[in-house]
Nucleic acid binder design. Sequence first.
RNA 1: GAGCCCGUAGCUCAGUUGGCAGAGCAACUGACUUUUAAUCAGUGGGUCCUGGGUUCGAGUCCCAGCGGGCUCACCA
Length: 509
Amino acid sequence: MALSEHQERRLEKLRELRSQGIDPYPPRSHRTHTAQEALDRFASVEDGLGGEHDSEPVTVAGRIMTIRDMGRSIFCTLQDGSGSIQLFLRRNDLGEEAHTWFKRMIDMGDFVEATGHLFRTRMGEITVQASEVKLLSKALTPPPEKWHGLSDVETRYRQRYADLISNEEVRDIFIKRTKVVRAMRSFLDSRGFMEVETPTLQPLYGGAAARPFTSHYHTLDQTFYLRIADELYLKRLIVGGFERVYEICKDFRNEGIDGRHSPEFTMIEFYIAYADYNDVMELTEQMIVHCAQEALGTTSFTYAGHEIDLTPPWPRVTLRQALLDATGIDYLEVRDQKELYEEAKRLGADVQPADVWPRIVDELMKTFVRPNLIQPTFLIDYPVALSPLAKRSPDNPEVVERFQPFIAGVEAGNAFTELNDPLDQLSRFLEQVRDREAGDEDAMPIDEDYVNALMHGMPPTGGFGLGVDRLVMLFTDQQNIREVILFPHLRTKTTGLGLADALEPHISS
RNA sequence: GAGCCCGUAGCUCAGUUGGCAGAGCAACUGACUUUUAAUCAGUGGGUCCUGGGUUCGAGUCCCAGCGGGCUCACCA
């Protein structure tokens, strides 16, 4: 890619600045106020000014977003991390030389620093009347169009910096995302949880049903997998005596990409000793409400046109009952795969004759139950075959103590009373091995060290996992997961940007 | 992996039946001392994603490829 006319022109200005002895990239700024602080300051002193300028000068700094050149006076919008403030640059204030220099050398996108007195314009906008202005950083590429911004989805994802510069809504999404994560930490920290770090590179993956990414460690000449979940490591820590642990980290699953799945996504998992899934359910409600309160300032929001109200308590419905109500099928009665398949087929579910029994149950839930769970609802008590790490219900060994919260039809977590019986755990692993041999690539491998950990004794424990990206999607009303991931994965372009060749002639020294 | 749609100036987008490549913003020249997408007058700017093909003539039609989006499949 050759340089654009705009870039060439700015490179010329760069040379000219240097020849004037001006460093286009000085090492530091001397701002005294952020844009917001300057606005706040003026608002607080304005009443005593009697229409005059604030007598105390301020220095603000930021990126020039717009320039309105009126001849002997210029208005600019200066944007920094706190917001934006208007600059008023008069020839009489700056002096003719500096005024002309500004017009000649400063472009939209440049970072500048301006010193002057605050006042309110006739149009009512709080403004810095600059008596001094200095270049802080020359932008060689112009910003996207000021009115429509950058809207090409591919460019927005590949060049997120440009997206963030021009689209305020995008910035807001990621600010909310940060608040959600911060709220999770503060919620758990204040309840005696310990944040821990477990391996990303694992010799054996587990804790979820998914295909892993595979890597190779040269020094050990050994295959490593990128984690698909941190569950098994966190429970080893419960065995070790930590009673409340959590981790927020990236998990990696080698599967398709679509609007709801990213191969690399953020997961929060927590585990509590001496708690069961009922305790975890209460904590989950509280945590999600806390996150909404901290990120949105409210517990109600709109997702995909649905008005969602998070006010607890959320209804708890057994999966068995929900399926019974929606389809008339009682999965505890229909134990035969063929019979269940026929029933599901008759109802119009997308099932294949070869689908295993638990998969058909799952499909029935996704088709007939999940889309109707608009207001927050806990679906509880799942078939054991769907949950190899969860503890069986004392009332029915075919059912495990597991729940999933659903909000706006979106799965907002997964949790259960943890299986701490090493022999039962081993038999579940063996079941997974049989599934794998039957062709299920997502089935978990047997983890003997994990069984060994359980043999040391694990207290009754409740555990929880939640895809952070999904929760942020809910809170920001985004239907595509890439809108809540700063740098989503896209296919790498074979042709580079060509900048190295294009810019090389412009390197001085 | 399949189907459908998209790719035109730095950005946002038009482009009719196949007939000289267009607009707004941005840039450049000039005017303007309180503007708010400032305004006004003028000027320059294109690998129409890439490669083939059809045609007197292709941004437009056909084929292949590349990249992206949506839907489906896959995905506790």
